[in-house]
Design a protein around this nucleic acid. Structure first.
Lengths: 205, 205
DNA sequence: CGATATTGACACTCACTCGTGTCAGATCGT
DNA sequence: ACGATCTGACACGAGTGAGTGTCAATATCG
């Protein structure tokens, strides 16, 4: 049992631990995002991170905990990028929001696997739903008051899920090479879908 | 090594084997459709089916093979029910198709889990895509000639994926109690979404 | 009733992976 | 340089589940 903590390679104990945790998160993103959670072992993550099991259990107690942390990170990143965009130009022009959100997934197929596919199972489902609910809240926050009509809330919720599902499925189809379009074209189509689905445009029909 | 085959409980050897296979498929639907594939063991399926492992390996070589067979069955059922509906009134009035397709999932939450969630992984992904592609084909088959414009095919494909994703996500949200609406209302909304997304209505806009 | 096919319960081996432990060597503080 | 800490590689036991085998009990045919 070590009594004092020394610096190694110019890093303090906390820095080293944080760095190792970072490496593990990166390894988790890579493996969970490519071969998937079900096919990933603790030793695989360690090998990918260039560490040993000792340091895995230093920061996480199980693979699922690592998965949760990885998804948490990705969703936090995404939220941080998308929220201000929605808040500023969201309701008037949905394209910046779509471009940011979808662009991130099209830029890194691992995100598709991680955020769309893997989040259907287990504890991740809660994160998925929480993220969608938060998206609804943020969106309504930026909306004109008349759209906060409580009778429309259920509809909003349904539409949000429908739209999230549409984006996800298109992203999956693209990631597996079943849709051969440029990111621009895909965003064009999704923007058009969004504009048509949006209740704002829908009240009038 | 048995040399002759006898009848048991009034059934021939083939009938008994077929009956056992049927029981295993039902057990698979129940377990895969509730706790999910990842949490299901061979012994669980056998217990649910009221059989022993011997008879599992009589009809299947692995759990994944059983899963494939179960999904295959469900998709075949769904296809058999939806295709004629599309062929008859599909393009003019999408509601019967939606009612059939979505109604089946809302009537049995196990189908949601099985067809929407579990089909994202492994060999099932191919079945999922194959089903969607087939849906596109059948749909275009019933469409007026002008809609077969090849330049619209890529768009059709994207829209089909988007719509499939929307239905799936809504079904998941409903199955997990996050959407509290009657099946009728949900179908209403999805029909509206469909009518707006449909390229038929979209060319003008 | 006797012989044999069929069945169900269960024991058994094997492979895999988790989580922990050990230990020699590298690195740092003094 | 020396002692203590930190690190990486690997060994080890435990638990789980797959796939196969055994055997007594049961049902059928002659």
């Amino acid at each position: 049992m070590p009594q004092t903590r020394r610096t190694y390679r110019g890093m303090s104990a906390e820095e080293r631990k944080a760095e190792r945790r970072r490496q593990l998160l990166a390894a988790g993103l890579e493996l969970f995002g490519t071969r998937g959670f079900a096919e990933t072992r603790v030793d695989d993550v360690c090998a990918e991170a260039g560490l040993t099991k000792r340091y895995f259990y230093e920061s996480f107690t199980s693979l699922e905990e690592l998965l949760l942390a990885v998804v948490e990170d990705m969703l936090a990143d995404l939220t941080a990028r998308v929220v201000p965009v929605i808040a500023s130009s969201g309701w008037r022009d949905p394209r910046p929001m779509l471009s940011t959100f979808i662009g991130a997934m099209l830029a890194d197929p691992r995100l598709v696997r991680l955020l769309v596919i893997e989040t259907h199972t287990g504890a991740l489902a809660r994160q998925r739903h929480h993220f969608i609910e938060r998206a609804i809240d943020v969106w309504l926050e930026a909306a004109p008051d008349r759209d906060r009509d409580p009778s429309l809330l259920q509809t909003q919720r349904l539409l949000a899920h429908a739209y999230a599902g549409a984006i996800g499925e298109v992203a999956v189809a693209w990631a597996s090479g079943r849709i051969t379009m440029s990111a621009e074209e895909i965003i064009d189509h999704l923007e058009r879908i969004f504009r048509r689905i949006s209740p704002r445009a829908g009240v009038a029909q």
